[in-house]
Simulated assay, not measured.
Amino acid sequence: MSAFFDDWDRPAPRQTGCASGSAPGSGAAAGQAPGVPGAGTAAHASAAAPVRASDKRVVNGQGDINQLAPFKYPWAWRFFLNANRNHWTPLEIPMAQDVHDYHHRLTPAERHVFENVLAYLTTSDILAMRNIGLAVMEKMTAPELQVYQARQVYEEALHTWTYQHCIESLGLDQQEIYNRYRVVPEIHGKISLANRLLERAMRTDFDLRDRGNLHEFALSYLFFAGIFEGCWFYNGFSPIFALQRRGLMKGTAEQLQYIMRDEVMHCAFGIRTVRTLLAEENLQLDPLAVARLWEEAEAAESAYAGYLLREPILGYSASLHMGQFRFVANRRARQLGVAEPFPGAQNVLPWLDEQSNLRKEKNFFETRVTEYQTGGALAWE
């Protein structure tokens, strides 16, 4: 999965909203509203002045939002093309063995883990879909950014379908599972934190020309790209992958592998966009505000891990879960270009990157052959 980050681990170059020697937005007609050709001109006007790719910006751009090319951000278009090569649906993955495993092979502690992972994820992906579709995409002023984000909105809906497919296939009580984020404090805490950071940024009247609002928006996007998707999702699949290593719930785990592939791209795109936004706007994030985000995220994740893994399962525990969260958080911080929140955190789950990778394309007419470590080689924490 780390290959997706190879190109954007390096600092993004500082970019300006106009070509050298030109005034910002000089390609737009006088009085023209951003992204609306001919706005503010006489009613009988039949054409508008041309715009240039250099007029594009991540936000607050003066280019034409309907004019896809030439690209100013060709990397965003590559994300879109790569995402479309990853198309899949949950119906292509058999769940019969998972039904047997859930009802006859999982321990009560393992069923508790499995159910609550699904309960958290069902709400999280809908929240991610709303964040991108209503809070982020609406404020982007370069169409190549919006095109990938439109694909991302679809993928979040696909992920929600996947969790529903797993819940329905196993015959779980849908109302009870979907309500856990409301009634279980440890799940609610994570969703509540995300909603709080999303609330103001989602407003259509949230003016990003105001530097304070711009800083708040950048922090919110950093949270959703680097923490919500880059840490909580990445870490959130780990308990299911721990079952998969023992040959349990393989259909669910395979679907999460496909979701993981999507989410790593979402995270990489968001981090690249945040860094480009900061460079374009010459914006410095308040390090204390960033540190508070990590602290709040860790506290919410720690409470969730304590509830999820109140009894450790073979090969996985709350302490391992939190150790991996801190390790991945440091990785995301480096990619974002901010200080590591947990210096010295170690990779306590070295198998996770390999386990979460799809090592080859699936032949959907055959069952994938996967190697699993035997239970005897695993340890109770």
Rank of each mutant, 00 (worst) to 15 (best):
S2L: 08
R10T: 10
G17F: 04
C18V: 15
P24W: 10
Q32F: 06
A39K: 15
A39T: 00
G40N: 07
A42I: 06
P50S: 10
K56G: 13
Q67W: 07
Q67S: 12
N82W: 01
A83S: 15
A83D: 12
N86P: 02
H87I: 11
W88S: 09
W88V: 06
W88H: 04
P90L: 05
L91F: 00
E92D: 11
V99E: 13
Y102S: 14
H104S: 13
N116W: 00
T123P: 00
M129P: 04
L134F: 14
A135S: 12
K139F: 12
T141Y: 05
A150K: 03
E155I: 03
E156W: 00
H165G: 08
E168R: 13
E168N: 10
G171F: 07
Q174H: 04
Q175W: 03
E186T: 05
G189M: 07
L193R: 05
N195R: 15
N195A: 13
E199H: 14
R203G: 10
L219R: 07
Y221Q: 08
Y221P: 00
L222K: 02
I227R: 01
I227Q: 02
I240C: 05
I240S: 02
I259D: 03
R261C: 06
E263H: 04
H266W: 05
A268Q: 03
V274A: 01
T276L: 06
L277E: 01
L278N: 05
L278K: 03
E281K: 04
R292V: 04
W294S: 02
A303G: 14
Y304P: 05
L309R: 02
R310C: 10
Y316I: 00
H321G: 06
M322V: 00
M322N: 05
Q324P: 02
Q324A: 07
V328M: 12
V338E: 07
P343W: 01
Q346M: 10
L352K: 01
S356Y: 00
N357T: 15
R359A: 12
F365I: 05
F365W: 13
T367P: 04
T370F: 00
Q373G: 15
